[in-house]
Design a protein around this nucleic acid. Structure first.
Lengths: 188, 188
DNA sequence: CGGAGCATGTAAGCGGTTACATGATTTC
DNA sequence: GAAATCATGTAACCGCTTACATGCTCCG
């Protein structure tokens, strides 16, 4: 039940249309909970039916856009959700699985895959760091509670990606060496 | 399509019955790809139908257990999968979402949730560290390829949990302070 | 022989993904 | 006015979760 609350949060930060939400998910909130436009439209419909948000009446907007805003009930629901309890989601990482499989049947071409992932995570790390210097430039100064919390979340992204890049770098070294040494052994 | 390959890997490491697999998932492979017994039985059925594994005929075993082993086709399929390409799964973290929501509607009781998660991750970190000293005691010595790769995967788990515990400790500090200072403000 | 628990499985539902559909606006 | 693309949706599928069902064995 996280997607509706992610959407409520995004709409509180700024009322938006479905497409705008989709774009904003792609470059911010979605880093911690990805969603496609199909999911978002479906969920907007449900939230409107539930009376948690509404389409802003005003002008019909340009094009066919519908702008949504959060209603008081929606804010309440979100505040309640913030205090709710929920076990950490089990980790799901196919690449780690691949390495364990590689331990049994030989490394094959995992190296390429490892380097591909490394590039992706490095790029994401850069993106986060740019966001950090752009949105939270003044470290020492006392921030608003809002900014502090948002920065904290961004920090998680940065540390996470830093972990991945470092680990994958190590993995690449090990796998390259194993690949050179014992190609096609397959640990029969 | 990761679960079947996780099962093939586990069965290559050691032929097992469904229940044994479930237990082993809970304490090892499942750290990177959790699975319940329902999923496992279903998948074992599919893999057997596909001719990738088979129930070991031998004695009917004690109880009603069926032991499965990997067939040559299964090993081939796994080796092919190791070299396959596959984008990193998008991160999904409700707790980060909660903090962003807290930035908009006030921190409420997130503190308790943060500390609960902190305890879970700290416990997991301990478990990983115990596994490391037990299964990979000799650092300096040259390991087999198999052991090296498996250790590398365990390393990922350790670094990951270390990251979480450190980040959550920081979050706890910040949230406590915010909670003390501006409770019930809700950033109207 | 009756109850506890072991071991394997079935069924329903839900969230997420992928593919496709529709209308409206802009561009050439 | 045809093509591109913007904006909103619908439909089908698939893996995972939760709840329930069944038979077997061990123990008192």
């Amino acid at each position: 039940m996280s997607l509706p609350h992610a959407i409520l949060t995004a709409l509180l930060e700024k009322p938006s249309s479905g497409l705008e939400l989709t774009r904003r998910f792609d470059k911010s909130i979605g880093f911690f909970w990805a969603a496609t436009h199909q999911q978002i439209y479906r969920e907007l419909g449900k939230l409107e039916d539930a009376g948690l948000i509404r389409a802003i009446p005003g002008p019909p907007a340009q094009g066919r856009r519908k702008e949504y805003e959060v209603l008081p009930d929606g804010r309440e629901e979100l505040a309640a959700w913030v205090s709710r309890s929920d076990d950490p989601r089990p980790l799901r990482d196919p690449l780690a699985l691949r390495l364990r499989a590689a331990a049994m049947v030989g490394v094959g071409d995992v190296g390429a895959e490892v380097r591909r992932h490394l590039a992706v995570h490095a790029a994401q790390l850069d993106a986060y760091r740019i966001m950090e210097t752009r949105d939270f430039p003044d470290d020492q100064a006392r921030q608003t509670a809002e900014a502090t919390l948002q920065h904290l979340v961004l920090t998680a992204g940065i540390e996470m990606e830093r972990f991945w890049t470092e680990w994958l770098t190590k993995v690449d070294a090990v796998v390259s060496e194993l690949g050179d040494a014992g190609e096609a052994d397959g640990k029969q």
